[in-house]
Design a binder for these strands. Structure first.
Lengths: 333, 333
DNA sequence: CTGTTAGCGCTTTCAA
DNA sequence: TTGAAAGCGCTAACAG
């Protein structure tokens, strides 16, 4: 089954290729009505479908962007992707989704592949461990925006949560509710900015309230070690009374522990999580959480990227966009 | 900043374009060690990046597949995408993700766009309302596989859950536990196969156990009307004792209702959901669910597609692959 | 208003 | 073992 090309259409309509091309690109300012009709008919009859690859080669633009998420298992990533997809759809762009699995090697491979595929821009949840590559892209003025994380000394525009504030909101709420010994557990993957900022926010808020900082109340662990970590903090003398979960995966581990050990929330342990989770509102007790505006973040990232793509040389954008966290108070604290 | 092409490399290394091309495609069976070195060096120095678009135009293959999910909000879609992405990664393929939003018009647009982009194949969670298009693709022998749903009279290979069995497993478990008045709530979107099959499975299992079928115990509703529907079934005389949730979204609505009305699970209402949910194990009570092997489904779909892509003419594959549901018994029934 | 022509960057015979 | 040349399908001057 032979592919129909523009040449076939041209022949069928007894016009030249370029006329057909004009038609396809809606440049019929000066096209005879009659010609238009014939072309349209020919396209229908032949079932012609334009070959975008050929067009891309010529035009040096693919109407496609790539997004490399650090870890597609986080609910947050999915939501951001969805937001980006929405924006792309509105602008007739397409989205290539890649999952770097928090692996810098995979990330590098994906970046190179996407560039080779001539995508018009890339949105990255950076692993942070490909600084030379990031800088190279920056130097080439390649459209790129970071999401969720910033990379020190790499001035690529980045849209992310105001992490300090998010953690601060949670800690302040704990304090307002009368809790004094407040722990925090985050996920380590690598030295990635949200984790550090969230811990900073935690510390700052404690300090500004005149509370001491106890390093034993601060843990950064792999997901599968969260429960042990919590156990340790609960075994301390005196034990923690409240815990802040650094993200959704951590929160779920904490809830598992709580259930397994028949703890009561919030009397045995008060809990606040950063990241919304689908079940927060109907969990027992309903979970107090600090929500990230994932949709807004994705939208903003896509918009920044499109700006960059469209008017390459515009004045440099603000480097970092911080989105507002929202404390949703329910019953777990 | 000018793009480096193969011609630049050739010149820099004092060889011809074709030699460089050979090198890039690792066809150096007969290439002088010395030439190889020079080319490699030139590539490094110039920072050459191949242009895959040009290659695709020539080779008529893009090493890219598209996946159109019906609704990216379902947890199941995300998991399937992830599985597909994994397989693609192994085969150096890329994935363009599209969200049809259960909208046939959007679906059509995406299918056409993907074909125009020359993707090598498409995996679709079909809306079911583009039969002419589906058949056209089939006629063209375009590599395509369906996931999650079948479309009547469109013999495109499809990989999906054994829905009857899934519902049957749940109903049988209800019955084994002594429940007699068992309701089922599913999502309506359109007349899509899983819903119908799940209801069939429900009915068959009831019948094979000698139970009557009460149409009042069967509801297909939009997500935002699930709670009302449940309320009605609970207000019946006599009311239902147990309910099967047709998917994750429905299950969550049911749980919201249960919480709002302070019902006890399973004594006031026993619950089983189809589709795994992240919180099933640590919900109170832990939720009994019928899990879909999302990863397996995604993997199988990708494999089928790759087979089709690679050896176009192979004997026709089995039309429908049914994957096994797994009943995970916990405490909600 | 429409046709001719020259590429886009790469692969692929076929010669040399 | 390497090079010359044709061409993938489309677009974009520039003529006519």
């Amino acid at each position: 089954m032979k592919r129909i090309t523009i040449a076939d259409v041209a022949q069928h309509a007894s016009v030249s290729k370029s006329t057909v091309s004009q038609y396809l690109n809606k440049r019929y300012d000066y096209m005879a009505e009659d010609t238009k009709q014939r072309i349209e008919e020919a396209i229908k009859e032949l079932g012609y479908r334009p070959n975008i690859v050929a067009r891309s080669l010529k035009q040096k633009t693919t109407m496609t962007i790539g997004v490399i998420v650090a870890n597609i298992l986080h609910n947050f990533s999915t939501q951001v992707i969805r937001a980006i997809e929405d924006i792309c759809h509105d602008s007739d762009f397409h989205l290539i989704v890649c999952n770097a699995d928090d692996n810098p090697v995979k990330e590098k491979r994906y970046i190179e592949m996407l560039q080779a595929k001539q995508v018009d821009g890339i949105i990255i949840f950076p692993t942070g461990d490909n600084v030379p590559l990031y800088n190279e892209m920056l130097a080439e003025n390649y459209p790129i925006v970071f999401v969720d994380r910033i990379v020190p000394d790499v001035p690529i525009p980045s849209v992310m949560l105001d992490n300090e504030k998010a953690a601060g909101l949670a800690v302040q709420h704990f304090i307002d509710k009368g809790y004094e010994r407040i722990g925090v557990i985050t996920n380590v993957i690598r030295n990635v900015s949200p984790r550090i900022e969230r811990i900073n926010g935690y510390k700052k808020t404690l300090q500004s309230n005149g509370f001491p900082i106890n390093e034993k109340y601060i843990k950064s662990l792999e997901v599968n070690r969260v429960q042990e970590g919590l156990e340790e903090m609960l075994a301390l003398e005196p034990p923690i009374q409240a815990v802040l979960a650094g993200n959704d995966l951590t929160l779920m581990e904490i809830l598992k522990y709580v259930k397994n050990h028949h703890l009561k929330i919030p009397s045995d342990l008060a809990i606040i999580g950063i990241d919304d989770v689908s079940f927060a509102s109907f969990y027992e007790p309903a979970l107090t959480i600090v929500a990230q505006p994932a949709f807004e973040i994705g939208k903003k990232a896509a918009e920044l990227l499109f700006n960059k793509i469209q008017k390459k040389e515009l004045e440099e954008e603000l480097a970092v966009y911080r989105c507002e966290p929202a404390l949703i108070v329910r019953k777990s604290c």
